[in-house]
């Protein structure tokens, strides 16, 4: 019974394994190759694609005056709600404004709001989180309680509440986003610091007599930068989505300033939705593409900085 030639049925993987084995045999003794990178190629490729899209949209918005032939604000009553043409690449809206120009200029404001709020809230969150995580004490207690209060509100409700109180303006929106957004990054930075604090090199630095601020910001912060970067990208994406949502409701940036959300606001009208697809589809796609690219970057950063998430 044993002597009968029994073989396991071959599976899809076997062929792949054979190739790998043969390659390995043929290069035995030769110098090692960086085969490890091959495995991470796919996730990196997505991050790379994300970065390219991100860069293109950012640059196009930045150089909007050079790229757009029309003024985004000035109505043109002779070209109302026209479909895309050579003259108006994305068509025109109900007051005859060029949508391509509006998308480019709107990108400036939307990206400014998203990235600006993310950076500001990261700055506040990191400064407080790093210090209070390392030093602890009353500052830590207060910051923790305050962030708990902020985080027990559903974010959009808190944002709208503040909009109702502070009023609608571009600056107010950034302030409101920063106020409602710092808590998450503060908690993350604090948690990272609490775990880094127990590491030996920190004990050593303390025994050298270095001040707490220097140890916290100069020596410990760099070790927490990875997750902070990931957090900044993810909150940029979240803020851009929120700005779009608020402006769509007509409660974000004042309607006179073009932003991606404000352009989409027109689609609340069912007739526009049904008949003038070019007014809302391109800008919706742009928001989605931009947020997608930011999320890809975030994921790539996470994979690159967190070895436990590999694979």
């Amino acid at each position: 019974m044993v002597d009968a030639p029994i073989t396991r049925p071959r599976t899809r993987r076997d062929g792949q394994f054979d190739r790998l084995r043969d390659r390995e045999t043929s290069m035995q003794g030769k110098a090692k190759r960086g085969g490890r990178f091959l495995g991470k190629f796919l996730s990196n490729r997505l991050a790379l694609v994300g970065f390219v899209i991100f860069a293109i949209i950012c640059l196009m918005s930045l150089f909007a005056p050079l790229l757009a032939q029309h003024d985004p604000m000035s109505p043109n009553l002779r070209a109302i709600a026209q479909p895309p043409s050579v003259e108006h690449w994305f068509g025109t809206d109900k007051t005859g404004r060029d949508i391509f120009a509006r998308v480019l200029y709107g990108g400036r404001v939307s990206i400014l709001v998203g990235l600006g709020s993310a950076l500001l809230s990261a700055l506040i969150g990191v400064i407080i989180g790093v210090y209070s995580g390392y030093v602890g004490g009353w500052l830590d207690w207060i910051a923790m309680r305050v962030s708990e209060i902020f985080m027990s509100f559903p974010q959009i409700i808190l944002v709208l509440l503040l909009v109702a109180i502070l009023g609608q303006s571009l600056l107010n929106l950034i302030v409101i986003f920063t106020l409602t957004g710092w808590g998450g990054i503060y908690r993350m930075a604090r948690a990272r610091m609490l775990s880094i604090r127990e590491e030996e090199y920190v004990q050593a630095l303390r025994s050298f007599g270095l001040g707490p601020a220097r140890i916290a910001y100069k020596h410990m912060l760099p070790n927490a930068l990875g997750p902070i970067m990931v957090n900044i990208t993810l909150s940029t994406a979240a803020f851009i989505l929120q700005e779009a949502g608020l402006s769509f409701l007509g409660l974000g940036v004042p309607l006179s300033i073009p932003t991606w959300g404000n352009i989409l606001n027109a689609a609340q009208d069912l007739r526009v939705l049904e008949q003038n697809w070019w007014i809302w589809l391109p800008v919706g796609a742009t928001i989605s593409l931009f947020v997608l690219s930011v999320n890809f970057i975030g994921d790539g950063l996470r994979d690159a900085t967190d070895p436990s998430q590999q694979g």
């Binding site: 792949q16 394994f17 084995r21 390995e24 085969g35 490890r36 091959l38 495995g39």
Partner: peptide
């Protein structure tokens, strides 16, 4: 028994 992790054969 061979392992095929990371596109290498061990």
């Amino acid at each position: 028994t061979y392992f095929y992790n990371n596109n290498r054969c061990n």
